[in-house]
Design a protein around this nucleic acid. Structure first.
Lengths: 344, 344
DNA sequence: GTCAATACTGACAGCGCTGTCAGCCAGCGG
DNA sequence: CCGCTGGCTGACAGCGCTGTCAGTATTGAC
């Protein structure tokens, strides 16, 4: 038996195909009774609109392209990141009966721009979601914009006026983490700054300062040290902090890798975590749950961010103009084993 | 300027649209000179066929659906696995100008079958690639087959006659790993079996036996222990093996998690790896490169497997009938730090 | 009650491509 | 010379849907 078409539905419901189309597309100006009848007919025939015909007739695809840096280019794939992006986008796609096209590409490859141009020409996606770090590369952003395809950048912490961006509240949530540590009785909370070029990581430091203020604590210069986002730098910073005459009882690192370095040093020096030292990180990388003790950290709301990005394409809210361009999705603190009450 | 259509190309080349279509689709029965002229016109206008119109007119989509078990359902996502599947499929898709649709689903969810039915009805993919473990679930396989959609199962080690399967040479490569350990001078090579329901893992045991035979070694009963694929079981098995009066100098585990358990026990007991004990695993999960020492393991050729699967859909080779249904892609051994010459 | 404004509905013409089939031409056997 | 095959090409009719616009029903204001 052949698949039912819009005409079959129309005949059964006693309306025109166009009216069926209106119902399917949730367009206004259909009487409730009519809508009802059409919906019954759709259910009865278990009709599914043919996406190809829809796309062809409407000149719009229902395809969202998710573009991210190719993880296979690296030794250790940051795969949790990508899977969560995919997951969020997929969620929105399913609900809106859109489809998802994924396109990893190497940011440093010469032909990236050509590659994207071809992609756009071939599939004409309804919109593009560009994940960090690609979302911060002017060349790539410019080439997509030039094509006129709606673009949403997923960028933790950076913003360009007039562009649609979904970002997270790095600063606020870092402040919250700091206040949480303070609420556990910690008075000397150290902070390990990240790489100075990493914008989001910079915001976290500001959040730390906010948090100290909020908890009524003084900022102590010797408790702020600078790493470079690597595990190794976390170790060095931790050593420096623990050798202080009056060492901190809690260390908040601007990313999980550095926090893992702190844990390593603590283990080496037989400093018990969390009994003697609380450690908190940022990012909730998969390692955070695999190490012992499991790391208290800030989870970036990647799934939600990607979902919001997809919806802004689906809703056509990409060209919202200045002001409405930025959307913030709040991160959450994952309370785990590495933080606890301050020692007496 | 509007995108060029097939008619524009036809006019420029002085042929009919249908002939352009023939050239684009690599159909036979076009004179070489004509083909040439058309190709020039295509290049000149930088014409890209409209996929939606193609799909609509030809009743075939150029979409491959990759279906896999939803990793977000678990605490620790086996994300390397999925990314590599995606990577392989994408490669084929790009080369054939197909598109990739990804669809994670939870194998144990009640509505999986309905969900897949809807997916198929909505997008009518050209074919479906079903990844393990879904590929071994009769209900899911049956529901896809019932729809008539070409199906390729990605299944390390299991086969159903008459079905298209892309598999790997688990048994042979495990034998090779065993021979490699023997070649390093190890005479007492232990094996940790995996979960008895995991078919691929069973084949690895047979490969181990083959390898022993190939190296002229005797099989010793006390050197074969059974785990259940978990890290914890690997630890238990390792303890058992190391307490033997005449312990093994090499341990080959049927998966990386168990091998990681072995490494953990070695570290606890201050057994130096690889100086005193060589350890090998299977799967090359991302953890294998993150632990110390980095694990020698068998890398499943997932990327290639997925690529082959996609090509067999693209080439329409799915219904090759019995015999041609199974394709084997060879795995490779990743030689890393956890294996070395046997102690004197 | 009238009239304009508004809500609803349907006819129709494509979207850009491909399947079908008919037509043309060259080559060849009779 | 005819008829016939087989390689090559094009005319044409949709694929199943949506945008446009015109037409009809209904509402509200007076």
């Amino acid at each position: 038996m052949p698949k039912p078409t819009i005409d079959d539905v129309a005949r059964l419901a006693g309306v025109s195909p166009k009216t069926v189309s209106r119902v399917v597309n949730r367009e206004p100006n259909v009487r409730a009774a009519t809508r009802e009848r059409v919906q019954q007919a759709i259910a009865e025939l278990s009709y599914h609109p043919n996406q190809f015909a829809r796309n062809l007739a409407s000149h719009r695809s229902r395809l969202i392209a998710l573009i991210y840096d190719d993880p296979s280019a690296y030794e250790v794939p940051s795969s949790g990141y990508i899977l969560r992006l995919q997951q969020g986008t997929l969620k929105a796609c399913r609900d809106a009966s859109y489809e998802l096209l994924i396109h990893p590409c190497r940011y440093n490859s010469r032909q990236v721009v050509d590659e994207l141009r071809t992609l756009i020409a071939q599939v004409r996606p309804a919109g593009i979601i560009l994940a960090a770090p690609l979302s911060n590369m002017p060349k790539i952003v410019a080439s997509i914009e030039a094509s006129g395809t709606p673009l949403v950048r997923l960028s933790p912490g950076s913003e360009i006026p007039g562009h649609r961006v979904v970002a997270t509240n790095d600063r606020e949530i870092s402040a919250e983490m700091t206040r949480y540590l303070a609420s556990l009785g910690h008075h000397r909370i150290a902070f390990i700054k990240g790489h100075r070029q990493h914008k989001a990581v910079g915001l976290r430091y500001l959040g730390y300062l906010d948090g100290l203020r909020g908890a009524g604590l003084e900022r102590a210069d010797e408790l702020v040290v600078a790493g470079d986002n690597s595990v190794g730098s976390g170790e060095r910073c931790a050593e420096q902090l623990l050798q202080l005459p009056h060492p901190p009882t809690a260390i908040f690192a601007a990313n999980d890798d550095m926090a893992a370095g702190v844990l390593r040093v603590a283990a080496r020096n037989e400093v018990k975590v969390p009994e003697e030292l609380s450690v908190a990180g940022c990012d909730d990388i998969s390692l955070a749950r695999q190490i012992h003790p499991m790391l208290t950290t800030i989870r970036q709301p990647l799934v939600t961010m990607a979902e919001r990005a997809a919806w802004s394409i689906i809703d056509g809210a990409v060209d919202d103009g200045p002001g409405g361009g930025m959307e913030i999705v709040a991160g959450t603190i994952q309370y785990r084993e590495s933080t606890g009450p301050a020692p007496d």
